[in-house]
């Protein structure tokens, strides 16, 4: 432990192409890229499924299967295939990012779907009755009301991606996972722990930042800020029931909603 502290407080470890700053940036880059692609893919599909009520069984089945899929196995499988198929950077980065995207999709997809499916039917009926088009109902009512669940899905996805991006170092990808993998190979435990601590800090800080973004994106009418905890825990229980356990539970999310 003290070794890790020494490692972290050694200035030389922070600079250069394999320094902490560079690795952190790499890690962030993989994470943000994968998260952005996953949001672009998963949110429209989840919204469409929630809005139309079609293919709901598919969502829970998909989410369940993907949760059970061992990330390490998937990562290595795609990396081997990438190395034999492509040349250059893309051979490693492509498969790794693909795996990250695949892992980030289920929580966003199922939470978007669950959030929209949980919109009060009366509110939806009123929206249509007042003359909103299907698109307007989705954009002005369903998505904003589903936003707490969507944001918690994005946070789950973020944590999943940060963790898996660490593991991706085993297939020679950059990022903070390099310290863990290299440390292990070099039998340098201090380096390993330092890397692990950095990953943990990144996950926690990133999660907090996303929570803060959620604070501004979610209407106070839906959270515990102005209203007693109403949507948060109850919706989660509903979501678990609906998904038969496949909905990713929001971890740190809205922990204080009851207080």
């Amino acid at each position: 432990m003290t070794g890790a502290w020494d490692w972290l407080t050694t200035g030389a470890n922070w600079s250069g192409a394999s320094g902490v700053w560079a690795r952190l940036l790499e890690h962030l880059w993989y994470t943000m890229l994968a998260l952005a692609v996953a949001i672009v893919i998963a949110m429209p599909i989840g919204a469409a499924i929630g809005h139309t009520g079609r293919a709901t069984g598919l969502v829970s089945g998909l989410a369940n299967a993907l949760r059970a899929l061992p990330t390490l196995g998937l990562l290595i499988l795609l990396a081997l295939w990438g190395l034999s198929t492509f040349k250059g950077d893309i051979a490693l980065l492509g498969p790794a990012i693909t795996v990250l995207v695949i892992l980030a999709i289920p929580p966003i997809l199922s939470n978007t779907y669950a959030g929209i499916a949980a919109v009060d039917p009366a509110a939806r009926d009123a929206a249509i009755g007042m003359g909103m088009t299907g698109r307007e109902v989705l954009a002005k009512v369903e998505l904003p009301v589903a936003m707490p669940l969507i944001m918690s899905g994005i946070r789950s996805a973020f944590l999943q991606v940060v963790a898996t991006a660490t593991i991706a170092a085993v297939v020679s990808l950059g990022g903070l996972g390099r310290y863990v993998i290299d440390g292990y190979n070099q039998q340098d435990y201090s380096k390993m722990v330092a890397g692990a601590l950095l990953v943990a800090v990144l996950a926690i800080v990133g999660d907090r930042i996303l929570a803060l973004i959620g604070y501004f994106m979610i209407s106070p009418g839906l959270t515990g800020r102005k209203v007693r905890a109403r949507a948060t825990t109850a919706d989660m229980v509903v979501a678990i029931r609906q998904e038969g356990g496949s909905t990713v539970l929001e971890p740190a999310n809205q922990a204080g909603a009851r207080s």
Partner: peptide, 10 residues
């Protein structure tokens, strides 16, 4: 929130 790999190491 802490990634499993980090916990395994620490």
């Amino acid at each position: 929130t802490i990634p499993s790999i980090a916990l395994f190491v620490v």
